[in-house]
Design a protein around this nucleic acid. Structure first.
Length: 970
RNA sequence: GCGAGGGUAGCGAAGUGGUCAAACGCGACAGACUCAAAAUCUGUUGGCCUCGUGCCUUCAAAGGUUCGAAUCCUUUCCCUCGCACCA
């Protein structure tokens, strides 16, 4: 066989040029054709050029776009550049260039590199956010929001990144650090700032999730970020003034023993008494010196303000503390603290020796087994003691194993009416253990309930448990009664094994933890105690009832709170969209009139002296659009996420210089049918762009409110050792180098075959050589193939491959497609001849993955002459529904050839000839009784092994087990 | 702590009740070609042997359901990713 080396480079160039010249990827709206919009998140262009993540991202989209193109869709597959933003500005400063030049150069370089990848982009629609023709519309949308009251300015604690030299949105702070500078700790600054009221859309952002075919994780992250919680706002009176307090646990109101106000609360000083002022000041000073990061890791701390709040439920006075763990702008910035049922409150209470009051008693209800509560029987309440008994010398405790029930508990028993619980405890210890000298040490805090069916007494029991702690004085022990012996067995358990011994007895476990000072607030459900008229009610029910009770007294309201904050959009930097507002000393804040848009960035500014825009006086000074008097421009620019919040709409009509876009064009192309990008944007871009779309829907510009119903996250590509690629580690794989060495198609095939695209993978040099192997094989097969007839085997395989690959690409299961392609071409390589048609189909299946070499081979086998019939535009093969035997031996043949085990054979001299076939249930449908009867001359009966629907004559099926079908001949 | 996803042969990774000792790739081994190597091709790659439509042991661990479990249930262990003082 002749072998030919593939000249990837010239093949790539040849076809990329042909595609471009014939404009086969440039699209227009066409009402007759179904559209498909494939979009990859656009890059921010850096001088470094493409990295492997880009090529992974783009290839995933490109395979899909090519697939849809071949399926006859009108495919929109655009590309653009998110070129405004801090990184570009910083990089430009570093290179001593103007950001504009830096960006232009980067974009040129990017496009050049992207073009070598053979992607199906419509280069006629490129969007560049740094182009005033683009950001003009950022400003336009901003003004629309401003008109509708969605933009406002307020003094607030904002996140300041010292490395970015600007403030950040909440979304851009990760763990107290800047999302771009993992080494920069974000500072909290009080500043007057511009916000967009994204919180108005919180509910719709949540609601919209139902329409999205997005990774569940991403939706979960967004839900978590928006953080909707239902609760009650309860008015506490402090100093005669009403303070509304948000809580999700109104059921615990009787357990409130103190209040904590955020140390950053605006009205903090209203609460601080003269006497406490120095203390509070000291505390705040201490907090000031720590960054947000440290704050997050700090212990809960606080200081008494001197004020007391009146609990509206009990009229009790409780102290108000200022604390570092309360968020100022969530709820009302103050919390009611219930130390017995909230972990943070408990820690705080312990630290400052504040009383702890239990208001919810855990209830353990047996729901399964013989001890489960019987619904139809009444329930009998009974006081019960649980006694923890310590060894007279060692660190060991008495536990019991209940013989019938399998329970593992401490000593437990009922308390008679009017009986003292300590006496009852001592009695039970003596009865159940025989030890004669238990010494009562103390009662354990808390009340617990157990509900179960007492089989020995035949009644439902409701045990109200008190815990007592005893120590044995000595080892004196009497024989216990036979009756007790049968019930339970005594076990001495070492201190550190008690918890695991008790495995599923919640109340005993809690008692044990309390005894050993393991601080754990009880946050689960239970019954109310110490709560006056609400005692005995289940706490979930009590949430409702207590809220209603307080509402009647006009002391509470049902409310909803969100974690989502308004979007802080202003940046004190140059390279962003200027905020189109003007400050006039007479008229206040005045929007720039629409006709004056865009407000262009001035070219002449000085960098490195705070906000560069403030250095261009000529630009700053302007006239007030209202009174024509002297005024100044707003010098803040917009967050770069503004630019990317609607770019996908601009692609639909990228060159429109009259309006933001032609509505009808957007109507045709949108929404994005498949959006591909990294998961790191889950709570940033992917929330903002949904919000923007909803807003544009509300002002009547678009008729949908979700921009991208289907989203896909590509995974990370790491180096061969599984480590993140980074320049400093020197383990970066340059996609362009790899493509130059192995060919674009080989690289595409490799990165699509290495793992499921959403999982990412570790780079492997031997892996890409493997891909080269199969590409070479395909090439050589094509070069040497004799065209003629197809074998049956090949037709079957090809048909299945069409079915599988079509489904797999649709599901972005590219890895499986590459496997299917390997199998298919492997089989083709073994054929002595094949029809041109079949080979062409196989090439088409390969084409989305390896567009260049398939185009070349397509031409080679004479399917494309003079670039009239590109494979890229050829029709995707169709699966033909045909009956398949799949080459496996028919079960019927097996029976006839007697290869099934014969279970039992009865003399054939008997008159009735009948065979019983025992087969696996799933095989029943494959049995052809007539065929068998005809061939053997027996009548037949078919049984599935252990088929519950058929009576087995003599239980013979059992003999057919294990697992094999059998034939029974009678 | 909470949320999501995982643990399968030397490695990567399919497989969610029966045709599973488990696709596919990488690696390894053997053979062919070659003076030799690379490339390529062919075969083997859980263990055992009487080499078979054979037996045994496997899909994190332990139990369970089932005629039958990598797949379903329970418990435990481990890993990865996200969120993390939201009252």
């Amino acid at each position: 066989m002749a072998e030919e080396k593939i000249d990837f480079k010239s093949i790539e160039k040849k076809w990329q040029k042909a595609w471009e010249q014939n404009k086969i990827f440039e699209v227009k709206e066409d009402a007759k054709k179904k559209k498909f919009y494939v979009l990859e998140m656009f890059p921010y262009p850096s001088a470094a050029g493409l990295h492997i993540g880009h090529s992974f991202n783009y290839t995933i989209g490109d395979v899909f776009a090519r697939f849809k193109l071949m399926q006859g869709f009108n495919v929109l597959h655009p590309m653009g550049f998110d070129s405004l933003g801090l990184p570009a500005e910083n990089a430009a400063i570093k290179e001593k260039m103007h950001p504009e030049e830096y960006t232009d150069n980067s974009i040129k370089n990017f496009i050049k590199q992207q073009k070598t990848l053979g992607l199906t982009y419509d280069w006629d629609r490129v969007v560049n956010t740094a182009d005033p023709e683009y950001y003009k519309w950022d400003q336009w949308i901003f003004l629309k929001m401003f008109e509708r009251g969605l933009v406002y300015e307020k003094e607030a604690a904002v996140n300041w990144c010292p490395k970015c030299d600007t403030i950040l949105a909440n979304e851009q702070v990760e763990n107290g650090r800047c999302w771009r500078h993992k080494d920069a700790e974000v500072e909290i600054k009080q500043m007057k700032q511009w916000f967009i009221k994204i919180t108005d859309y919180a509910d719709r952002l949540l609601e919209g999730h139902k329409k999205l075919k997005w990774p569940e994780k991403t939706i979960a992250m967004q839900k978590n970020w928006i953080g909707k919680s239902f609760g009650t706002e309860i008015d506490f009176i402090i100093d005669g003034k009403k303070w509304p307090i948000f809580t999700t646990r109104p059921d615990t109101i009787f357990g409130v023993t103190f209040m904590v106000v955020s140390s950053q609360h605006k009205k903090l000083w209203d609460l601080v008494t003269k006497k406490q002022k120095p203390e509070v000041e000291k505390f705040l000073k201490k907090l000031k010196s720590v960054s947000e990061k440290e704050l997050a890791e700090m212990e809960k701390e606080g200081v008494f303000t001197g004020s007391y709040a009146i609990n509206p439920a009990t009229q009790e006075k409780v102290p108000v503390y200022a604390g570092n763990f309360v968020v100022a702008d969530y709820g009302s910035g103050m919390v009611m603290a219930v130390p017995s049922h909230d972990q943070r409150d408990l820690e705080f209470a312990k630290k400052y020796k504040i009383p702890i009051k239990q208001v919810i008693a855990p209830v353990v209800e047996t729901k399964e087994g013989p001890d489960a509560i019987r619904e139809n029987l009444p329930i009998k309440k009974r006081k019960t003691v649980v006694c923890i008994v310590k060894h007279w010398k060692e660190e060991k405790y008495i536990c019991l194993t209940w013989k019938k029930q399998g329970w593992k508990t401490f000593v437990v028993g009922g308390v008679e009416d009017n009986e003292d619980i300590v006496k009852a405890g001592i009695r039970e210890i003596k009865e159940e253990t025989g030890y004669q000298n238990p010494v009562f040490i103390k009662e354990i805090d808390g009340e617990f309930h157990n509900k179960f069916f007492a089989t020995h007494k035949n009644e439902n029991r409701w045990a109200v448990i008190k815990g007592l702690y005893f120590e044995l004085k000595d080892s004196k022990q009497k024989e216990i009664s036979e009756e007790e012996k049968e019930l339970s067995e005594l076990v001495w358990v070492e201190k550190n094994k008690v918890l695991s011994f008790l495995h599923d007895d919640e109340s005993d476990k809690i008692l044990w933890k309390r005894l050993n000072d393991i601080d754990e607030a009880y946050t689960d459900s239970g019954l109310l105690i110490n709560s006056e008229q609400f005692n005995g009610i289940n706490n979930e029910e009590a949430k409702q009832k207590i809220t209603e009770w307080l509402m009647k007294k006009n002391l509470a309201r049902k409310t909803i709170n969100y974690k989502l904050r308004d979007w802080s959009v202003a940046r004190q930097r140059y390279w962003g969209t200027p905020i189109p507002l003007i400050h006039c000393s007479k008229c206040g804040v005045v929007p720039v009139p629409e006709k004056d848009l865009p407000v262009k960035l001035p070219r002449e500014v000085k960098f490195g002296e705070g906000n560069p825009l403030l250095t261009n006086k000529k630009w700053l000074e302007t006239k007030c659009p209202k009174c024509k008097g002297k005024a100044t421009r707003e010098a803040n620019t917009m967050d770069t996420f503004v630019n990317s919040s609607w770019y996908f709409l601009r692609y639909c009509d990228a060159k429109n210089n009259k309006e933001i876009f032609d509505k009808s064009k957007v109507k045709y192309w949108m929404p994005v049918d498949l959006y591909i990008g990294g998961a790191e944007h889950a709570c940033m871009h992917l929330i903002y762009c949904r919000f923007y779309t909803m807003f544009l829907h509300d002002i009547g510009l678009v008729d949908f409110d979700e921009p991208a119903p289907r989203l896909f996250h590509q995974g990370m590509i790491n180096d061969a050792k599984g480590e993140k690629m980074s320049k400093s580690k020197g383990n970066v794989i340059e996609p362009l180098e790899t493509m130059a060495k192995y060919g674009v198609d080989t690289t595409r095939f490799f990165i699509m075959s290495e793992a499921s695209p959403d999982k990412g993978f570790n780079w492997s040099d031997t892996g890409i050589q493997g891909s080269l192997r199969i590409i070479n094989k395909i090439w050589n097969t094509a070069s040497n193939m004799k065209f003629g007839k197809d074998s049956q085997e090949l037709l079957v395989k090809l048909n299945f491959s069409i079915k599988n690959i079509t489904e797999q690409i649709e599901n972005l299961d590219y890895r499986k497609s590459t496997i299917e392609l390997r199998e298919l071409f492997d089989l083709i390589s073994k054929q002595s001849e094949i029809s041109k048609e079949s080979f062409g189909k196989a090439l088409k299946l390969l084409s989305p993955f390896c567009p260049h070499i398939t185009e070349e081979l397509w031409e080679k086998i004479g399917m494309n002459k003079n670039n009239k019939n590109f494979i890229s535009l050829a029709e995707w093969p169709k699966y033909e529904e045909i009956k398949q035997k799949q080459g496996k031996e028919d079960l019927n043949d097996k029976i006839l050839s007697n290869t099934l085990p014969i279970i039992q054979k009865i003399s054939e001299s008997q008159k009735i000839k009948k065979i019983y076939l025992y087969v696996m249930p799933f095989e029943i449908k494959n049995i052809d009784r007539k065929k068998i009867e005809k061939a053997l001359g027996y009548s037949t009966e078919v049984f599935a092994v252990n088929d519950p629907n058929k009576k087995d004559p003599e239980g013979r099926a059992k003999k057919a087990i294990p697992g094999k079908p059998g034939v029974y001949v009678e």
